[in-house]
Amino acid sequence: MSRIEKRFTALSEKNQSAFISFVMGGDPNYDASLDLIKALPKAGVDIIEIGMPFTDPMADGPAIQLAGTRAIKGGQTLKKTLDLVAAFRKADDETPVVLMGYYNPIFNHGVEAFIADAKASGIDGLIVVDLPPEEDDELCVPARAAGLDFIRLATPTTDEKRLPKVLENNSGFVYYVSITGITGAATPDGETVGKAVAAIKEKTDLPVAVGFGVSTPDQAAEIAKVADGVVVGSAIVRAMADALTVAGPPKKSFQKDTISTVKKLANATKRARK
């Protein structure tokens, strides 16, 4: 059983939704980012998503765009993001880690080399925003053959006819994008999301996590009632940005402030069904 599957199974036995956090790898720099990521499981994070910074993140809103820019300025590269996970894995062999980003840095690294390096670093799954099912031969098929989960985005524009195609090579979990729009933009309403999640679950046994636009503990709780996982990215990244000075090293309170935001969201997610 993969780490992702184990984690969802354990949580579903407790009747809990998974709390999935997104942080940008290397934001604001490698060391601070590693410290923060190491602290996430204790703060209640069930699955860690780590962003691979890219200059042209076409599906991301301002918060995550800026996080990527900070990370690149801080010297982050794809190789360093792989190193980050390898360093995290030395102390934690259970928390699933999913890399999220765009295809060009991976294509540039070489698909075969990337898959081998990702496996060696202890990465469990990949979310690559600009690889729809139509481009599965690029990375999805070889990654899955190597035992990496390929987590697909389903969106409000994915209609009944298209859904089977989206689910076909999907593994690990399904990431339902709750709004049409960019990350962190709008607020989804629980009832609509619940219906969409139910429609997806009719067609697959995979867990369904919901993200894009979930930013407060109340929203997280509302989503946790209807989905197997809640993904929060922009709100955490914004909390980090608030704790960062514009230039120079991060404030001392940087990690504490960010973790406090993470805890509130994680607790709301865990208590939602009680």
Binding site: E134, T157, R162, V166
Partner: peptide
């Protein structure tokens, strides 16, 4: 039919845009 000119071109977009 996949939108390719040899290995170039294609449809590298987010799922939200795919149906469009």
């Amino acid at each position: 039919e996949k939108g390719r000119f040899g290995s170039f071109g294609g449809r590298f977009v987010a799922e939200t845009l795919m149906p469009l």
